[in-house]
Computed example of a mutant assay.
Amino acid sequence: MPVCESPSYHGYDVTNYRVIEKDYGTEQDFLDLMAACDARGIRVIVDFVMNHTSNHHPWFQSSSDPDSAFFDWYRWSNTHPGYTGPWGQPVWHQHQNGLYYYGLFWSGMPDLNYTTPAVKQEMFDVAAYWLTEMRVAGFRCDAAKYIYEDGATLEDTAATFSFWEDFQIWYKTVNPEAMAVGEVWDRTDVVVQYVGSKFDFCFEFDLASLILHSISIGNPTELRSTMAKLKTVYPYHQYGTFLTNHDQDRVFDVLQGSVDRAKLAASIYLTLPGIPYLYYGEEIAMAGVKPDEDIRRPMQWNAETNGGFTTGEPWHDLNPNYPDYNVADMQSDPDSIWHHY
């Protein structure tokens, strides 16, 4: 998840795009991490939240004054425009100044207004900062469907497609070997529109759901036909395979706590075409169901206090299964799911 300064535990409401969240450390700590990874042949991408900021961001706090130079950095309306979001959620929120501002996800994360050229330039400059000064290799671009709105059309607009084309040209100019993966949480026929001239690749959500469904019902027929389709609609292998992510119940719970099913799921998605993503802990059968905090618990390294995650106070209690599901024990068990991975 994001590592920029933020008032929340999850970091998707950024208050400073050029500062590391103090709970994680300092900019030098991050650079030390990059150096350690580089020494091991590992390249790192970061979660980049371009669609919105925190309502505590200085830009937004300044923009609440209609006379401010930042007023047009967000979408403001004198009256409520009268429509809701893609899943029926409120997207216009009344500010204490009496105006309404647009925030797709919630009132604490107002959307940036990319029709203002200065906004686009600043966020592109932020990307260059992370590629050059912070030495990352690319980005996982959050909420990629929602950058531009067209009236009440809030996703997949023509301007959004053009934006990501411009962004790809920009970051490839800064670093030709940089990459970006798009989070376009939608069906395949929508996702493919973002791949190629916009993102290097995107996550394949339909495939992830279908892998788990096929295992649950014990029938691979639909999975076979879907794989045949993916082979024809995507550029060669240019999609991200996964099982579940930080917004979904953990795969071990989805598969009813069955280690055998979890191993089968791993065998399928790690040998299919595509670019595989492991959500930390799935390789040791970490459990977790929503709320979100409970699917983002500390990693379970061993059976000791706090699972070996920290000698201090963890940000969240560990899952109760950590004495039986942890890296150290599974490394010594040749039949463990960790060895299977």
Rank of each mutant, 00 (worst) to 15 (best):
V3Y: 15
P7L: 10
S8W: 04
Y17G: 03
I20Q: 05
Q28E: 15
F30V: 04
M34V: 07
A35R: 13
D38E: 14
I42G: 02
V49L: 09
V49Y: 08
V49H: 02
Q61W: 03
S63W: 05
S64C: 10
S64N: 09
W76M: 01
N78Q: 13
P81L: 06
G82K: 09
T84N: 12
G85L: 07
Q89R: 10
V91N: 03
W92Y: 12
W92A: 09
H95S: 15
Q96R: 10
Y101A: 05
Y101W: 05
G103W: 02
P110G: 11
N113S: 11
M123T: 08
Y129A: 05
Y129N: 04
V136E: 00
A137C: 13
G138W: 03
R140I: 04
R140H: 04
C141Q: 06
Y146D: 04
Y148Q: 01
D150W: 04
E155D: 14
F163Y: 06
D166I: 00
F167Q: 01
Q168E: 08
I169R: 15
P176Q: 11
E177P: 04
A178S: 15
F199L: 06
D200N: 10
F201E: 14
L210E: 11
I217F: 05
T221G: 10
S225N: 11
H237M: 10
Q238S: 14
Y239Q: 11
N245R: 05
F252I: 08
G257H: 00
A262K: 08
L264M: 13
I268R: 01
G274Q: 00
P276N: 03
Y280G: 11
Y280L: 14
D292T: 08
D292Y: 00
Q300I: 02
N302H: 05
P314L: 03
H316W: 15
H316P: 01
D317T: 14
N319D: 12
P320R: 11
N321A: 12
D324T: 12
D324K: 15
A328L: 09
D329E: 13
D335I: 10
W338C: 10
H339A: 14
H340L: 07
H340A: 11
